[in-house]
């Protein structure tokens, strides 16, 4: 179980403050993040694995500060982005899945078996040798998830993982996320995705406006949006 402590974080891009003092401790298994466009959700998500470093304040993942131990944290916290096309970096499915293992100097057969396991976990084994660009959107997003999970992170952050998918693929990805045994933190505009989550944060203009159980938090959010 991962614990992420975000303390008094301000994130400034030039003169613009995307996050204006955010403090929260994340320890639940399934956490949702919602909020209007530009409210700071993606910036917040990127803080959690050190892709974005705070201008002020700190983010500590299981005792490691993201400002000091970026790589160790990225092994611990995986990240899946909105656009599946932009996170697949190798031309062929099996090569891409193995990308996260580069530099770990695993013996070849161990690497192969990790690739096998994660591909079959997500029903992609028959696509092993396919060029990634021939996959459907849903398959690409599954591949992105598989690629993030191959290093066995304790936590996975998703930034709008279903936004670019059709209904069927969005549901398939939503189910995949629900069934994951890792801690998951999901930024989304798809409120149904968060139904059985443990906790939902509502962002508004760079601050956490509501922090509550999904039903209560989403009700407040919907009310505010009207």
């Amino acid at each position: 179980m991962t614990t992420i402590e975000v303390t008094d974080v301000v994130k400034r891009f030039e003169s613009f403050e995307a996050l204006k003092g955010v403090s929260v401790t994340l320890a639940e298994k399934r956490i949702g993040v919602v909020g209007s466009n530009g409210s700071g959700k993606s910036t917040f998500a990127r803080l959690l694995n050190g892709l974005v470093l705070p201008t002020r304040g700190s983010v500590v993942v299981d005792g490691l500060d993201t400002a000091k131990a970026g790589k160790a944290i990225r092994r611990r916290v995986g990240f899946v982005f909105q656009n599946p096309d932009n996170q697949i970096v190798f031309p062929v499915v099996e090569e891409d899945v193995a990308f996260g293992l580069k530099g770990l100097k695993l013996p070849r057969d161990e690497r192969e078996s990790l690739v096998d396991t994660v591909l079959s976990r997500y029903g992609l084994e028959h696509l092993r040798q396919q060029p990634a660009h021939t996959l459907s959107g849903g398959q690409k997003q599954l591949l992105a998830i598989a690629g993030a999970l191959i290093t066995n992170p304790a936590c996975v952050v998703f930034d709008e993982p279903t936004t670019l998918l059709d209904l069927r693929n969005a549901r398939m990805i939503a189910r995949t996320i629900r069934e994951m045994e890792q801690t998951v933190i999901v930024v989304t505009h798809d409120l149904a995705l968060l139904n059985e989550f443990d906790r939902v944060l509502v962002f508004d203009e760079g601050r956490i406006l509501v922090d509550d159980a999904p039903s209560a938090a989403l009700a407040r959010y919907v009310e505010r949006m009207q």
């Binding site: 990127r46 694995n49 892709l51 490691l64 000091k68 131990a69 970026g70 790589k71 160790a72 944290i73 990225r74 092994r75 611990r76 995986g78 990240f79 982005f81 932009n86 996170q87 970096v89 990308f99 996260g100 293992l101 580069k102 530099g103 770990l104 690629g147 993030a148 290093t151």
Partner: peptide, 19 residues
């Protein structure tokens, strides 16, 4: 960003953070 997020295993570059 995606490469950065996925390259936790690549220790070639920053040997600095020893922890």
């Amino acid at each position: 960003d995606a490469i950065e997020a996925r390259s936790g295993g690549d220790d070639d570059e920053d040997a600095a953070p020893a922890r």
